[in-house]
Each structure stands twice: as structure tokens, then as C-alpha cells.
């Protein structure tokens, strides 16, 4: 029995059914950027560290931004629309390559048409 090379905490990554559709059997190995899904249990280390859904961003475009412009921004930043969260122009988007959420948010914020972009943060029951 070999001790863990680092003192891992119990880290768990949730692979959402939707996000998983295109992933191969090795998907998620290593768990980098993984997210915690442990039930709230006192004393379990590592609990509560997951801050946002992996591979997703929320983007608000300026009023009047046309669909073509949004589509071209998506192509440039490698995003797909999951859904319009609230009309008219808050979009939930999925990162289709392995760019990190942080990098994607930074790239999006360079566009004049983007009011803001942010990770899809998580909230927990209290």
C-alpha cells in the first residue's frame, strides 16, 4: 500500500450528465479543476471548496447585440449556448475546449458587446 504522494483531501468532481456527453472514458481523470460534491458533513476536509460549475460561464451582452455577433464571439472564444437564463440577453454558455473558466471570462470581457462575464457560481443550502 503506497501512501499518497501528496496528502490528498477527499476531492470529488461531479460530472454532469450534460457536460459529460462528449467525454471519453478517461474524462476527468486527475480531477484538476474538479468540484466538491460531498454532502455537508462536519469534519470532512476539502468540503465546500468548489466555487463554480466547471466548464460554464454566464455572459451578459449589451442590449441590442444581434445574434450574429453573439455567434461570432462564441466561435472565437470556443463557447456553445446552453440556454438563455433570463431574457433578453443573459446566456449560460459551455466551454467546448479545455480553456479554463478564468481565462474564458477574461477573454469575454475584452468584447465591447459583453457587459460582463462570470463563472457560474454555486450556492449551498444553509
Amino acid at each position: 500500500m503506497s501512501p499518497a504522494s501528496r496528502m490528498f483531501q477527499m476531492a470529488i468532481f461531479l460530472v454532469l450528465a450534460v457536460a459529460c456527453a462528449g467525454l471519453g472514458s478517461g474524462a476527468g481523470k486527475g480531477g484538476d479543476g474538479g468540484i466538491q460534491t460531498i454532502e455537508r458533513k462536519p469534519g470532512v476536509t476539502g468540503e465546500g471548496e468548489r466555487r463554480y460549475a466547471p466548464g460554464e460561464v454566464l455572459v451578459r451582452f449589451r442590449d441590442g447585440t444581434d445574434a450574429g455577433t453573439i455567434a461570432s464571439i462564441q466561435r472565437e472564444v470556443h463557447l456553445e449556448t446552453v440556454k438563455v437564463v433570463s431574457s433578453p440577453n443573459l446566456f449560460l454558455m459551455k466551454i467546448v475546449d479545455d480553456t479554463s473558466v478564468e481565462e474564458t471570462v477574461q477573454r469575454l470581457q475584452r468584447y465591447r458587446e459583453v457587459v460582463y462575464a462570470e463563472p457560474n457560481y454555486v450556492r449551498r443550502i444553509q
Partner: peptide, 19 residues
């Protein structure tokens, strides 16, 4: 099969409840 959960790490010899 569709994976819903993946995990690795060390539970520090504790039993962990998973849902």
C-alpha cells in the same frame, strides 16, 4: 453508462456519506 460522479483522494480513514 453515464458517469454522474467521479472521485479520488484520501478519506483519512473516515467513512464519508455520499449522495
Amino acid at each position: 453508462w453515464t458517469p454522474l460522479l467521479g472521485l479520488y483522494g484520501d478519506s483519512q480513514n473516515e467513512w464519508v456519506d455520499l449522495v
